[in-house]
Design a protein around this nucleic acid. Structure first.
Lengths: 205, 205
DNA sequence: TTATAAATATGAATAGATTCATAATTGGAG
DNA sequence: CTCCAATTATGAATCTATTCATATTTATAA
């Protein structure tokens, strides 16, 4: 039975996350001070540190909520995938993208990536876990196409999924680094890379 | 003719870079303060900011020196590449890796990646330039194998090179995120991904 | 050589994340 | 209900990157 103490704790944590999330979304990471977050959450500054070990941890905690949403959305692609492998996988990756990039501006995404790397030592496993889930989910889609014969049955699905994830990751980086790149261009770029990966580099014949 | 002013300026900049480089290599980025760097370079703290716009800029400036070295080393693979495509490309990427990873501990590499992302808005083009050079260099190697017929002639070399670069990038991230991964394991992983990329996912036959 | 302006160097002042000693709150025992 | 120990909240103090007004140095002209 959760006592009053637990309930309050949960409420506060949510209030802090909401306050920080709203502020980060509005103005980015660096320009928002812990003092502001504390004020908006109606809490003392020190209290923030009882719930999150650092400002970066706070940021990462927010986005891990979103990864959960991304994984759910992607499930519908697996349930009824487009016919072609490239089409299906492009859609799948695009769903992942949209979960983050339609909400957060590029500037914030860069700060998220930076936080990700600099917190790797501290949170290693938890941070990676989200990505592992994405890879496993991609593997499920690969498996669909292995069964209908479009993808070679000798290819380990996990390896293939990792390769696809690489495309996702690198295209994310390219997207956030080029201020002018649009989601449309990104999608095209994704398709191009996935197609190349599907066909392979080796000479046919 | 470079006046005394220019000469002194150059000397100072080098002294600062050397001091910072040595300290970062020893103890990592965050634990080293600007004050320490200034002391070691025998310069006032404020002076550091006349040469580098921030601590991160200082770090990135140091590693861009190393990218130059990486590009030079890789040239020898292009000049006399191993026979097989996968062997050759694995060696190529491994040379890039070694230029950074044999010198810097993983902890520092993470901080470099973090600095990279959070400085993207400020230095965008310059930062990307280094990577573009790597991609172009990889394209040269692709071209070698297109000419001898191992790689399909219809594949745009730049696209193929970008795909290879993706493997490099993602494997770098995996490597620095897993504290226990060795360079040997990395190389194996590289080869595996490059091989998959060469053969393609599509069913053969 | 001397004077002047431009370029540089410098460290004290600022700003913001994090720590930590202290105060307030809670759950449970008597 | 009252008190105690454990938990949690709090903001003042600390630690650092960064800024900026001031001092110093350099190049050039008279």
């Amino acid at each position: 039975m959760p006592g009053l103490r637990e309930i309050k704790k949960g409420r506060r944590e949510r209030r802090i996350l909401d306050a920080a999330g709203a502020l980060f979304e509005e103005r980015g990471f660096t320009p928002v001070s812990m003092e502001e977050i504390a004020a908006r959450a109606e809490v003392g500054v020190g209290t923030l540190y009882n719930y999150f070990s650092s400002k970066k941890a706070l940021l990462l905690s927010i986005i891990s909520r979103d990864t959960g949403i991304a994984l759910e959305s992607a499930q519908r692609i697996i349930d009824s995938p487009p016919d072609g492998y490239v089409d299906a996988m492009t859609e799948m990756l695009y769903v992942y993208f949209e979960s983050f990039f339609s909400r957060y501006p590029k500037k914030l995404m860069r700060e998220i990536m930076a936080a990700f790397f600099s917190s790797m030592a501290e949170f290693g496993p938890e941070l990676m876990e989200q990505d592992m889930r994405m890879i496993s989910q991609i593997a499920l889609l690969v498996d669909v196409f292995q069964r209908n014969g479009l993808v070679g049955g000798d290819v380990p699905a996990q390896d293939a999924a990792f390769a696809v994830y690489s495309v996702l990751m690198v295209q994310s980086m390219v997207y956030i680094s080029l201020e002018t790149m649009t989601l449309g261009q990104l999608k095209e770029s994704l398709r191009r890379q996935l197609s190349l990966q599907y066909e392979g580099l080796r000479r046919r014949g």
